[in-house]
């Protein structure tokens, strides 16, 4: 479980993440109805069955190649990028690529080991929803986590122009 932050506030989560259970394979497991976040392997194996769904979610792991869904991103209402450990920074590049290169405009959610002190970086690379780890101070994260710095030197998803191009 986790505590969802969206649009600068605590939010209810309508999405369930499909887990591939023991003995199940992406090709054969049952596809639940509703707002479901599917692992990449399930999406790849079951594209045609899922094609008709109105709202689709996708889960990307650190070593999933975002290039593999480049052509499909418009299909997803939500893409969740997993940070199994917060020190594994691959998800930042995944998010940056989804936003900057592949034109993804839906909800981009950081899930897994999501902590207060990384929220600012996550926001900068293009995340707009955050599943804060359970037990962490949600109110304080919302109040302070996104704004330790009032500006930044580099260009990134939230502000593509580096500071030096915005100097008066």
């Amino acid at each position: 479980m986790s505590q969802l932050i969206k649009n600068g506030a605590a939010a209810a989560d309508s999405w369930k993440t499909l887990e591939i259970g023991e003995g199940e394979t992406p090709e054969t497991l049952a596809l639940p109805a509703g707002d479901v976040i599917f692992p990449l392997a399930v999406w790849q194996a079951r594209k045609s069955e899922l094609a008709g769904r109105e709202r689709l979610g996708l889960l990307l792991q650190p070593d999933d190649k975002v290039e593999d869904v480049a052509a499909d991103v418009a299909r997803f209402a939500l893409i969740a990028v997993n940070f199994p450990k917060f020190v594994d920074g691959r998800g930042y590049s995944t998010a940056a690529l989804l936003r900057q290169r592949y034109g993804y405009t839906g909800e981009l959610r950081a899930v897994g080991n999501v902590l207060h002190d990384q929220l600012f970086f996550m926001k900068r690379v293009g995340f707009d929803s955050y599943a804060l780890t359970d037990g962490k101070n949600l109110a304080y994260a919302i109040e302070r986590g996104f704004s330790p710095f009032g500006d930044a030197y580099q260009g990134a998803t939230d502000q593509p122009q580096p500071y030096f191009r915005r100097r008066a």
């Binding site: 917060f86 020190v87 594994d88 920074g89 930042y92 590049s93 940056a96 990384q118 600012f120 970086f121 996550m122 900068r124 690379v125 710095f149 930044a152 030197y153 580099q154 990134a156 580096p162 500071y163 030096f164």
Partner: peptide, 16 residues
């Protein structure tokens, strides 16, 4: 110096 500024709090490369 320009590179120092660019490296400072780079959001994508803080957890290499």
């Amino acid at each position: 110096e320009i590179m120092r500024q660019w490296t400072t709090f780079h959001p994508e490369f803080a957890f290499l």
